[in-house]
Design a protein around this nucleic acid. Structure first.
Lengths: 210, 210
DNA sequence: GGAGTTGTTGACTGACCAGTCAATCTATTC
DNA sequence: GAATAGATTGACTGGTCAGTCAACAACTCC
């Protein structure tokens, strides 16, 4: 199944997906028309529907392609015999590098899926939840090993960690934070320093009041 | 200008705004129709356009009403002569309590504005930016006083702080984190502990590699 | 109590756009 | 080289919905 024909077909499909990323990033999923995607890809309107059942399916495909890579990465990192801080560093690096490599795609994933509580966020809630839970498990292990303070709820800590990273990307997406190689590295470092710094044993503060 | 008539008018306007919050939260801004808002408010379709120029203007009003209160709160907190940690605690409390008090409104603000890079987020970019900058100024002062480590970029730190809080709300909005009085207090405490813990002097780690 | 003002109604319209489909083209197979 | 299967085209349709408008109701003020 690897004739010239089959390859051309795969390429066309990819062509449309890549065009969709640019269009979604530029105009937003709701604001763009399917015709915009076809134009951007340089194909006829109808061809989009030859490869995808609906406009939604295009976004679903884009999200799942990338998110599944992230889930695999987190699982692989967790399986390694390295300190928590290195695990979390690897995850932060993966996310920031994903943005560095394809900012449009990450913009689309964050704006249209990860934070879209009434549309695609609900559709992909299971996948999104899984990422948070995997990070939570890393925190739990670190607590069991005595590296992280045990009184902090692991799920909350995972959310804080992920949220800090995503907000960095959001800052870049909105043009509110400076971008560039050096900034990307500083962002990784900052998240690690603040979140791990606060979670590690030796920090001050007792249990919460309420 | 406070006749019974004027008061009834103000009440009607508020009635529509409150109905819009519920509808936007339930269905999302794009998925709902203006007719849904009118139905929810128990008024005729046309009346919505008597009080608001467009569907957009309703969301704009809801966002600005609340966001301006937050900006005022942050400014007031910053002006007080209290330690950084208390300032940041007050801000975290304000945001979490806003959610506690009206989860639907906060859901709408976060999902439809704060994180909507291609629609209302752009419209209100100035207001959003201002919040981040005010928090950044608090961090800068803390660095000047020697309480926070100076090598961490204040704007990045502000984003990490705000992002961690917003992700907590997102967790509640998506139903991924447990809610309740105790959970809200724990969330505030956790964000303070992790972020401040990592930012305060005495934490480990040198400057970033890249 | 009548004139003017503001509030309220819901049917209607005009634009928009996702998705369909029948026709045409191109590659592959025997 | 005829036949089959898949790729490609773009005009068209059907439904949706934001916003308009003309009529009517209620209040205010002299």
């Amino acid at each position: 199944m690897s004739t010239a024909r089959a390859k051309a077909t795969r390429d066309k499909r990819r062509l449309i997906l890549d065009a969709a990323v640019r269009v979604f990033a530029r105009q937003g999923f709701h604001a763009c028309r399917v015709a915009d995607i076809a134009d951007e890809a340089g194909v006829a309107y109808g061809l989009v529907y030859h490869y995808f059942a609906s406009k939604d399916e295009i976004l679903d495909t884009l999200f799942l392609e990338r998110w599944n890579v992230m889930l695999e990465t987190i699982r692989a990192v967790d399986a390694e015999a390295i300190p928590v801080r290195e695990k979390l560093e690897a995850i932060a690096s993966f996310i920031v590098d994903s943005y560095r490599h394809d900012p449009d795609l990450m913009k689309v994933i964050i704006v249209e899926v990860t934070r879209a509580a009434n549309s695609f966020g609900q559709t992909h809630l299971g996948q999104i939840r899984e990422a948070y839970e995997l990070i939570g498990e890393i925190v739990v292990k670190a607590q069991e090993e005595g590296v992280f303070r045990p009184e902090i709820d692991a799920q909350f800590a995972a959310m804080a960690f992920y949220g800090a990273i995503e907000q960095m990307l959001t800052g870049w997406i909105f043009g509110l934070l400076p971008q560039g190689e050096e900034q990307f590295e500083r962002a990784k470092w900052l998240v690690l320093e603040t979140v791990c710094g606060g979670l590690e044993r030796g920090a001050v503060g007792g249990a919460p009041a309420g």
